[in-house]
Design a protein around this nucleic acid. Structure first.
Lengths: 193, 193
DNA sequence: GTCTATAACGGGATAGAC
DNA sequence: GTCTATCCCGTTATAGAC
């Protein structure tokens, strides 16, 4: 990917986090990225193309910051790794805020835009499986379907909590507590399976 | 509320469910409601006014269909009532689909539109408290904060699952199973409190 | 690949008659 | 309260030069 494209996609992620998919103006994107509108259409064809590529860009980036841990640090216990992975999405840093609000926007847009659905479903699946794998490390010997279900619930809950946080209804700390509680509940359930 | 306004709001709910908040065109709304655009602006002032009132309309309607049960039928056991109340939001009927997708849209819009936040927060609170009360009937003697937390988690999860359903990532039946599982998990947790 | 300039259009909002 | 007609602005998208 050319440096210019990356630069545009970074700007798009920033802007979507700030104004939403609905508020994204191509001209504003051009200004934010320091390029012309013409160049954007040259690279991404149309508005939907911009959104599609931004979704892809965002989910790649999320994988990176989820996976990437300081190699110096001692490896975490499975339980801590699970918790940390999930709680990482509930932090008030620019990058997380960007990813979360862009993700929420794209999820909402996908309801009405079939073009976005496939990419979104794929990215979701990857995420669910990652969480399910972590759950499996905490509770080995658990049947795969139970792990998958718990992974789906935890990630769906996380999306719900993110939206409430971003839309101002729920304080960040509170959302984090709620998520921790859900992890407890799910692990307790798995233990009984 | 005048019959005309209701008629317009019903049309708005339908249209938002079909096209999204972003896709809502005032002119199209007028056609759908069988009135003129002028009348819409007369009643609701501007586009945001339409959205605000539609949100209110939708959450009132949701309360109604949640609360309203055939008085002939025998009263449900608390556990069944809880489950039914929550699962009612995961049904493939026009009314539920409308409410859910409009709700999701408004939630997503509120992230970038402060005007919508207050109403949304209030409507959410009512809903959470209703679920918490039902949980309290299933598990009496549970401390209120634990009930509130479980209520918040279940409703947030439900929002997350709804979005996945509507955006095509998760089958309806599967979403319902996942929700039932979460109810189990939460009740098990409450029992240990 | 990148820019500037502009075409083309959609859609929010209002004025004024009835 | 309700309608018709219309203004006008913001936005997407393209043409064409460099």
């Amino acid at each position: 990917m050319a440096p210019r494209t990356t630069q545009i996609l970074e700007a798009a992620a920033r802007l979507i986090a700030r104004r939403g998919v609905r508020g994204l103006r191509v001209e504003e994107l051009a200004a934010e990225a320091g390029v012309s509108t013409g160049l954007i259409y040259y690279h991404f064809k149309d508005r939907t193309g911009i959104l599609r590529h931004t979704l892809e860009f965002i989910s790649n980036r999320a994988e990176r910051y989820t996976t990437g841990r300081d190699p110096e640090a001692e490896p975490l216990a499975p339980r801590e790794e699970l918790e940390e992975t999930l709680l990482q999405e509930l932090q008030d840093t620019p990058e997380v805020r960007e990813n979360s609000s862009a993700w929420g926007e794209l999820r909402a847009s996908a309801v009405f835009d079939p073009v976005l659905r496939e990419d979104l479903a794929r990215a979701t699946l990857v995420w669910v499986q990652e969480v399910a794998a972590l759950l499996g490390q905490v509770q080995p010997m658990t049947p795969a379907p139970a792990l998958a279900a718990a992974g789906e619930r935890l990630t769906a809950l996380l999306e719900g909590l993110s939206m409430r946080w971003l839309s101002g209804g729920t304080q960040l700390d509170h959302a984090r507590d709620l998520l921790r509680g859900a992890i407890d509940a799910e692990l307790a359930l798995l233990r009984r399976t």
